[in-house]
């Protein structure tokens, strides 16, 4: 564990806490893409298949459980909670995310560390996570002004993988044979997808204005 990875995990946890706060405090999920939340639930379920078989550390296991439970709870809340589900922007959240699942799985069948079920599901989860934010970014562009908590949620979610890139650079230079090209390249693509969001987020912060993504 290095400081970059810890910062990344804490930022990721922060994004989830901000989203839970938004939904719980405002009893609303307006501006949040259910499809992105569903993709993240698939990402964690596919990536942490080893949850019950391998044990690295208490931290590792606890964080995996937190990510899986929180992502499923958010999906459940947006689908079935009486008050929350009414605030879901169903007509704006129309990204066909099934293609993202299919595409990521096909890519994982081609590029993986080893041709085993676990490694293919792991690569699938890495590729899917890289594109999972797309429905959310599209929804933000369509839903005009973005409320603060939603903006902070997306910001922390994008920043966490940026910290992981620093972690991979650090591990590349400090560990003998550290080659995690699948995660590194996918992480670069993932962070790059947030580039324009980060730009408009920075502008809104600098001008102290409401965050607004151009349609």
């Amino acid at each position: 564990m290095n400081i970059f990875r810890l910062a990344g995990d804490m930022t990721h946890l922060m994004s989830i806490l901000v989203l839970l706060l938004k939904i719980y405090a405002t009893k609303s999920c307006s501006g949040i893409s259910l499809k992105t939340q569903e993709l993240y639930a698939v990402v964690f379920l596919a990536r942490y298949l080893d949850l019950l078989t391998d044990f690295f550390s208490l931290y590792n296991t606890v964080m995996k459980v937190v990510f899986i439970v929180s992502s499923l709870a958010i999906v459940w809340c947006m689908r079935y909670h009486r008050a929350v589900r009414r605030t879901y922007d169903r007509e704006l959240d129309t990204f066909r995310h099934y293609f993202l699942i299919l595409g990521s799985f096909v890519l994982a069948l081609i590029f993986h560390e080893k041709f085993t079920v676990r490694e293919i599901f792991w690569a699938f989860s890495i590729y899917l996570e890289a594109v999972a934010i797309l429905p959310q970014l599209v929804l933000l562009q369509r839903s005009g002004n973005v409320d603060n908590l939603t903006g902070q949620y997306v910001f922390f979610l994008g920043a966490y993988r940026g910290f992981y890139i620093l972690n991979w650079i650090y591990r590349y230079f400090t560990e003998a044979h550290f080659g995690r090209w699948i995660a590194s390249i996918s992480g670069l693509v993932q962070t790059a997808l947030y580039a324009d969001f980060f730009y408009y987020y920075f502008l809104s912060w600098k001008n102290n204005a409401k965050l607004k993504l151009p349609a």
């Binding site: 990536r47 690295f56 590792n60 560390e113 080893k114």
Partner: peptide, 10 residues
């Protein structure tokens, strides 16, 4: 030898 294919990262 090849790195043990474990995923210690989240």
């Amino acid at each position: 030898g090849t790195t043990l294919l474990y995923h210690d990262e989240l």
